[in-house]
Every structure is written in C-alpha cells, then in structure tokens.
C-alpha cells in the first residue's frame, strides 16, 4: 500500500541537512507501524513524503499504485482527503472553532450536513474535547489542540491514518486513551503509521516498530519494543 523505494531527502534551508538516506520501506494495508527515533532522525520527513508536503530528492514514494510526487494537483488533493493526518504541530485552522475545524474536513470530502451534525460531536466526545466545541484553537491548551487534530484526522474514517507524535502534549491518561483509539481504528481496518518518542506508547501498541537514526532505518521489528 505504501512503498518507499530508495528515498533520500536533502533540505537546503540555512544549512544543508540530509534528513533521509536511502530509505526502503513498505507498509501493507491494515498494518500498524510505529516509527521511533531520536529528535531529528527524519520521522516527520518520512510522513510528509506520503502526502507530498515534502518531495523526495531521490527515489520514489508510492501510495497504492501511484507515485505521489507525480500526482496532478487534483489527484493530490483527493489523496489528502483520503488520508487522515495528525500533524506534529497540529495545524488547526486558526479562524475556525473546534467544531468547524473538524466539520471542515468532512465538508471538503463532500459529506452531507446531517452526517456532519451527527459525526462531529461524536468524534469530539471520543477524544474528550466535546466541552470545548465552540472554542477557537488559541483558546485551547496544547493537549486539547492535539486531540482536536486527532478528531479531524479520524472523522472521515480514512483508509490510512498518519499520526506524527500524536501524544506529544498529552498526559499519561490522555495518552492511554489516544493509543486505544488508534488501536481501535486499526482493528476496524485502517492502516496506521505512528511516530513517537514515547516508550510507553510503543510498548502498549505492541506491533511493528521501525527504528530510525540520522536519516536511516536501523531496525525493523515485526512485533517490537522501544529500544533506544
């Protein structure tokens, strides 16, 4: 479903940074992959390649049978609607309230008003920010913003969920809840790619673990533990 074929990424901003080096990785439908590694190892870059926020310097990234970097604008937008993404820096819409942020993802996917009215409160309840439904992002704590970002990513029941550090701002109880949500979504058939620093998260997921260091994949364990 997802295939990285000898992918490298070199950033040329300020100083030249080799973020990824000769990455070969494939993810099958229905898998739950945790990507771990030190800060700066290239985890976010790896995720961003999947929806063409970052374009590889070398190699190719396939999503399904399509090469992501070669999609037309329209195809790319359609692909992004079919992927749920939790961004490490949340990326909520600052002038829209919590309800609208989640509803927006449903609207652009062409869902009906009735669906939106029913699903948005449901998913906000699930991640535990239902009482902040009418707040704007700047009126939320970091953890609350993160949970809204998760709600937005899962509300369309995407085929693939990319979660970049989704528990980075959460306390242990909320982290536990989010991990359970991710597992449940995966049980329902969604492919999940998760990046994290958090040993507890990786260990409680207990699925495939890909370990990165300085832009390379140094381990790929079928049912791993956090080993850094």
């Amino acid at each position: 479903m997802i295939l990285y074929d000898n992918v490298s990424k070199i950033y040329n901003g300020g100083s030249t940074t080799v973020a990824l080096q000769n990455i070969n990785l494939s993810v099958e439908p229905g898998e739950f992959v945790s990507i771990v590694g030190h800060s700066g190892a290239g985890k976010s870059t790896l995720i961003k390649l999947l929806f063409a926020e970052v374009i590889p310097s070398e190699g190719t990234v396939f999503f399904g049978s399509k090469e992501v970097a070669k999609l037309s604008q329209q195809e790319l937008r359609a692909l992004r609607r079919n992927i749920g993404t939790v961004f490490q820096d949340f990326r909520l819409l600052p002038t829209k309230n919590v309800y609208e942020n989640v509803a927006f993802a449903m609207e652009v996917a062409g869902r009906s008003d009735d669906d939106i009215k029913a699903d948005v409160p449901h998913v906000l309840e699930l991640v535990g920010v239902i009482d902040k439904m009418w707040n704007f992002p700047h009126q939320l704590s970091g953890g609350e913003q993160q949970r809204v970002a998760i709600a937005r990513a899962i509300v369309n029941q995407p085929d693939v969920l990319l979660a970049d550090e989704p528990t980075g701002n959460l306390d242990p109880i909320n982290t536990h809840d989010v991990v359970n949500i991710l597992k449940k979504i995966n049980d329902l058939g969604t492919t999940v790619v998760l990046t994290t620093h958090n040993k507890v998260v990786v260990d409680s997921v207990g699925r495939r673990v890909v370990t990165m260091d300085q832009g390379r994949i140094i381990r790929d364990d079928k049912s791993g533990k956090y080993t850094l």
Partner: peptide
C-alpha cells in the same frame, strides 16, 4: 498559514 492547512487536508481549490 490557514490556506496551507486547507491545502494539506485536501480541500478543493
């Protein structure tokens, strides 16, 4: 920034 986010969640032009 807001426009960038809209693009990233796949909003049509």
């Amino acid at each position: 920034d807001e426009i960038g986010v809209m693009n990233l969640v796949g909003a049509g032009k």
